[in-house]
């Protein structure tokens, strides 16, 4: 068994061709696959990280963007700790479909899930259709973190996962600590009660 403190499930979603697979490959394997074929079904990769001394394991589920494979990918939403919604900054329709993605997510996830919005392909300065501030304000409106990346030039890719893992880790450590404190204080309470209640 490998040794880690927490395991987090991360699911990538978004329209077909926005570069989900490229982001994951860049992050997990350090490569930019040229001419990557469309993902069919769901791909699965593992990445181990260490954040502030805590070892964590990321289970990354890279889903197909095409509508016709959607039912399979939906089954992964529920158990996800974090969702990365990706759009392509050079492709207006991929941005316009975001509200629909959010609606779909709401049906399946609980509120604790960390959601992050990623505008990919920011290296395409000429073809850009969605300015940074538009993406950013959309993310703010829907309570998401926002980041622009380029899987091709390896810009900000690490940051998505770092950011996300840090947030998840903070959450998990809080629960972990309160649980421990709870049991501790509970024990103390019982012990002190035993003596002082009655004397």
């Amino acid at each position: 068994m490998d040794d880690y403190k927490f395991l987090f499930k991360v699911v990538l979603i978004g329209e077909a061709g926005v570069g989900k697979t490229c982001l994951v490959r860049r992050f997990c394997q350090g490569v930019f696959p040229i001419g990557q074929a469309a993902t069919i079904g769901v791909d699965f990769l593992i990445k181990n990280l260490e954040i502030n001394g805590d070892k964590i394991k990321l289970q990354i589920w890279d889903t197909a963007g095409q509508e016709r494979f959607r039912t399979i990918t939906q089954s992964y939403y529920r158990s996800a700790n974090a969702i990365i919604i990706v759009y392509d900054v050079s492709n207006q329709p991929s941005f316009d479909r975001l509200p629909e993605w959010l609606r779909e997510l709401k049906q399946h996830i609980n509120e604790k899930v960390v959601v992050i919005l990623v505008g990919n392909k920011c290296d395409l300065t000429e073809g850009r259709e969605i300015p940074y501030h538009i993406g950013e304000s959309f993310a703010q409106r829907h309570n998401m973190k926002f980041i622009e990346t380029s899987a091709k030039e390896s810009a900000n890719v690490e940051q998505i996962f770092q950011e996300l893992s840090t947030t998840l880790l903070k959450q998990a450590n809080q629960i972990f600590e309160t649980n421990r404190k709870d049991t501790k204080t509970l024990k103390n309470d019982i012990q002190s009660n035993k003596i002082y209640n009655c004397c």
Partner: peptide, 15 residues
């Protein structure tokens, strides 16, 4: 994996 048959099957599996 991406020939029409497999895509159709994958879609069917989704359904």
């Amino acid at each position: 994996n991406s020939c029409d048959l497999q895509c159709a099957i994958q879609e069917l599996i989704g359904q």
